[in-house]
């Protein structure tokens, strides 16, 4: 197992290199640059800016400069938010996004897993239809609709919770954004759990347990372990996406996460910020895929990587 993990870390290096290379050139293909405003800057100012940020050098040299600084762990200064380095921006924003994402994910696994299992145990009953119906609803209503509705209902009409803001991560401020983030995940996880549980409950080895007269909780725990496999493989990419922030939720609730950097960075041609975001997301995706593979081996003894 250890050698598998080491191999995976080694193979992540060329993957990251390819991702960095492609996105470096892609963002530079987009027309315009970081210092193009509505009213063009004076030629002299522009020249100075370009020189300071080394944008006057040949592209290939810029690429090399960027690559070597990234290897030293320096993601450079933000081109647009000029008082900050990219590293500083992430140091502030990432904990916010990760807190939101981790809470939403745990919440979704707990609620979605439970709902899905109950629905599977009572297949084609009222409870089952309710869960699958709610699941469809959770999937189809977009979060930019749910979020303002929650703000109006819980923040303004009932005035139970603040409509936005971070407030150093106070619980009251977290409830609404975490719920909005979790809802579609609850829908997906409950549907996947339901399908996997139904398949497992029908399997021959569960029939064996029933033929041996074992109580329900034994049967459910065996079925859950089998049903966990497909859900876990979904959770890897889902965790990577959730923990790296959501543009919509962070914008609507005014939260200082990193979700908006990708969009804002791209719109402002903030080359270093976009690149930083790409690297962070790529690292998360690679990391969680590794976590999924390790979990797989822990759950299923038939899977061996050595």
């Amino acid at each position: 197992m250890l050698s598998f993990i080491i191999r995976r870390f080694l193979s992540a290096i060329p993957t990251l290199l390819i991702i960095v290379t492609i996105s470096f050139f892609l963002i530079r293909l987009a027309p315009g640059g970081p210092f193009d405003l509505e009213r063009p800057l004076e030629a002299k100012v522009m020249e100075n800016l370009n020189r300071i940020y080394q944008l006057d050098k040949p592209l290939i040299q810029q690429y090399w400069l960027y690559l070597t600084s990234v290897m030293r762990g320096d993601f450079g200064p933000s081109f647009f938010l000029r008082d900050f380095s990219v590293a500083e921006l992430f140091a502030r924003g990432l904990p916010v996004s990760m807190t939101l994402g981790a809470l939403a994910l745990s919440f979704a696994i707990l609620i979605g897993g439970t709902l899905g299992s109950i629905a599977a145990m009572r297949q084609n009953s009222g409870v089952d239809y309710l869960v699958t119906g709610l699941g469809a609803l959770g999937l189809t209503i977009p979060n930019f609709v749910v979020a303002p509705v929650f703000q109006i209902v819980f923040g303004l009409t009932l005035a139970w919770l603040p409509v936005g803001g971070w407030a150093n991560g106070s619980v009251r401020n977290l409830i609404l954004p975490v719920t909005v983030l979790a809802l579609p995940q609850i829908a997906v996880i409950s549907r996947m759990t339901r399908a996997a549980m139904i398949e497992n409950l029908r399997s021959n080895h569960i029939r064996t347990l029933r033929s041996l007269g074992l109580p329900l909780h034994v049967i459910v725990s065996h079925a859950l372990r089998g049903a966990a496999l497909p859900v876990v493989s979904y959770l890897g990419p889902a965790a990577a996406a959730l923990l790296t922030g959501s543009v919509v939720v962070e914008t609507i609730f005014g939260l200082p996460g990193i979700g908006r950097y990708f969009v804002e960075g791209a719109l402002n041609r903030d080359y270093t910020l976009v690149m930083g975001t790409v690297v962070v997301i790529a690292v998360f995706v690679l990391l969680f895929n590794l976590v999924v593979d390790i979990l797989y081996a822990l759950i299923d003894p038939r899977i061996r990587y050595d």
């Binding site: 399997s203 021959n204 080895h205 569960i206 029939r207 064996t208 347990l209 029933r210 033929s211 041996l212 007269g213 074992l214 109580p215 065996h222 372990r225 089998g226 759950i299 299923d300 003894p301 038939r302």
Partner: peptide, 24 residues
């Protein structure tokens, strides 16, 4: 029924390859 199944009445099946839980 569980008072009888597995203690008084037991059963073995046609599919030996899949009748045991692969995870335990």
């Amino acid at each position: 029924l569980n008072d009888y199944r597995g203690s008084k009445l037991t059963m073995i099946f046609q599919e030996p390859m899949t009748s045991l839980d692969p995870l335990y």
